[in-house]
């Protein structure tokens, strides 16, 4: 109780620096949060798209039905593959006509190649795996041509990675800045109380006792920064949700993790600083 009161006193003593530390912690977590949301939403979008990711291997006309059946069996035994289905020339034509609807006449008398349509298990639908599996299928001698994924899926993947990295870089930068500011605040607070601390030591107060109010101060700032960041992120998401595209928000666990992370920034920042400056008194 006494420690909490002391922590609030330092807030009053250097309100500007205290506000600054809280804000930078908030920005740090906001950067993590915002780019985290982008990453999260791209992933959700990708998951929906990925259901449709398939590899289509077009079969040469000369291939026998037996070898096709054999190949489909082999392919479906790949660990990444969830199904391998033979689409005959007739089925291909029927599918094309159905997709084109009113323009189905275009296909009158046309011959479309047969194919083996391969879908991948979830978890194996990233561009690299798709490419690898496609390469193996292409090795069958009667496979004429192969088509898979769309270029923009790959781009979306890249975007997700960039968003992730940007979030981590920006978030870490802000986290470092906030630790430096917290360190400076603590330094001032420690020096302002140097006399008091020296007397505490003299009469036998433990280091843990002397440190406690400073650590609680850091912790309080961290939690406040975390709450502020959560608010920022929520507002930003609501704006995007309303004016741009529908998005998902973090679940409660992730939000709580953000708070814990903010508290850690505050605690570590003050612990490092208080340890360094107490030694000099």
């Amino acid at each position: 109780m006494r420690s909490l009161r002391d922590a609030l006193i330092t807030f009053r003593r250097s309100p500007l620096l205290s506000a600054l530390s809280v804000t930078t912690i908030a920005f740090s977590l906001f950067a993590f949060g915002l780019f985290g949301l982008v990453t999260l939403n791209i992933r959700v979008a990708l998951e929906r798209l990925e259901d449709r990711v398939e590899i289509r291997a077009f079969i040469a006309e000369t291939a026998s039905p037996e070898s096709m059946g054999q190949a489909a069996g082999d392919i479906s035994a790949y660990p990444e593959v969830s199904s391998a289905r033979i689409v005959t020339q007739e089925q291909a034509l029927g599918r094309a006509q159905k997709e084109l609807g009113d323009f189905r006449d275009v296909f009158e008398g046309a011959v479309l190649p047969a194919s083996i349509d391969v879908t991948l298990k979830s978890g194996f639908r990233d561009p690299a795996t798709v490419k690898r599996v496609a390469g193996r299928i292409k090795a069958f001698s009667f496979v004429d041509d192969i088509r898979y994924g769309e270029e923009w899926i790959e781009k979306l993947y890249r975007l997700r990675n960039i968003a992730g990295v940007a979030g981590v870089v920006l978030g870490t930068a802000f986290a470092s800045v906030s630790m430096i500011i917290i360190g400076a605040t603590i330094r001032m607070a420690v020096l302002a109380r140097a006399r008091e601390i020296a007397i505490m030591r003299l009469v036998g107060a433990t280091d843990a006792y002397i440190r406690r109010p400073f650590l609680i101060e850091g912790l309080t700032k961290g939690i406040m920064g975390g709450l502020l960041a959560l608010l920022f992120t929520y507002v930003a998401r609501s704006i995007i949700d309303r004016y741009l595209i529908e998005t998902v928000f973090f679940d409660r666990k992730v939000a709580l993790l953000g708070l814990v992370f903010g508290a850690m920034i505050g605690l570590v920042g003050s612990a490092v600083s208080v340890g360094r400056h107490l030694r000099r008194i």
Binding site: R195, E196, I199, M200, L202, V203, G204, A205
Partner: peptide, 30 residues
């Protein structure tokens, strides 16, 4: 140090506390 008493030439009292509060301080922080 809780079982020692230490005094100096320059007293080392806290200016913003009364005599009682200065003495109580040593008890509170231990």
């Amino acid at each position: 140090r809780r079982r020692l008493g230490i005094v100096f030439q320059d007293f080392r009292l806290l200016e913003n506390r009364t005599a009682e509060q200065n003495i109580a301080f040593a008890l509170e922080v231990t």
